[in-house]
Amino acid sequence: MSALTQNVLWRGTARVMGLVGIRGRTLVIAVPMLWLLLFFLVPFVVLGRISLAEPMIARPPYSPLWERGPDGSLQIIASLENYRFLLSDALYRNAYLSSIRIAVVSTVFALLIGYPIAYFIARSPEPRRSVLLLMVILPFWTSFLLRVYAWMGFLRREGVINNTLVGLGVIDEPLVLMQTDLAVYIGIVYTYLPFMILPLYANLVKLDSALLEAAGDLGASPMVTFFTVTLPLSLPGIVAGSMLVFIPAIGEYVIPALLGGPDTLMIGRVLWDEFFSSRDWPVASAVAIVMLFLVVAPIMWLQSVQNRRALD
């Protein structure tokens, strides 16, 4: 096909589509919109619909949305009973609170560990940086499950840590590390640390070293420079990194299941139990939707704060 016919074809197509109100701009936006619609909004609506149903022994295991009454009229069956149940049962409340607590604590520790690492990489000479970044990303190349299992080898009663400490005579009795909240924190912080480091690094590497010199020149010690210049300017990186750790951590299932004890109550585990053990899909859906709002609310709030800052 010659360039000319191609050109004519394109123009013709564009004109026809323009007549029905579709422009190039619309098309470009349409692709991601469709993606979100298909893979986010539709499942969300399905989940929302199930959360309003009643559990049944059937396939699928919940009541249909509508029913023909005996007189042939259409009856819509939807109730907020599942949500009322969630709020009334202490198990769910505790699971939510405990998930938030574990996610917050893990995020704080990931930040405390990740910030110095990101800072160090960003301040390293250029050729060394890519090597250090590679080392941060490298663990992703092995299976996540495998890495969590490896931690079991470290933390268990006869594990590496206990054997070493007993061998060195630091402790007499092995420590109980496995199946504790501590093990869950270690697992989550270890797994999600790169998600904290990478956005922090991306932010810190852009920091103009002249600003640090200027602060020093004006009489600020390195410590004061950090708290008055570096830290406030890296806030967007801190927010991005914290979100990337907090969000997966709050719904984490595998790590508490493998490393946590029977007392480690997290919403991901409750979700699993409801879906697969109790086969109570409606309650499980309600649990998922409430969690979604718990996660989305702080993000929306942060977004609005950042937008206001940007306008300022």
């Binding site: 103009d208 002249a210 020093g216 004006l218 600020a220």
Partner: peptide, 20 residues
């Protein structure tokens, strides 16, 4: 004597104003 203890001040070529 470190920069923050010297009786000098510098005006930077890029100005290095604190953006925040």
């Amino acid at each position: 004597v470190p920069a923050d203890k010297r009786p000098t001040n510098m005006m930077f070529q890029s100005y290095a104003l604190f953006p925040h």
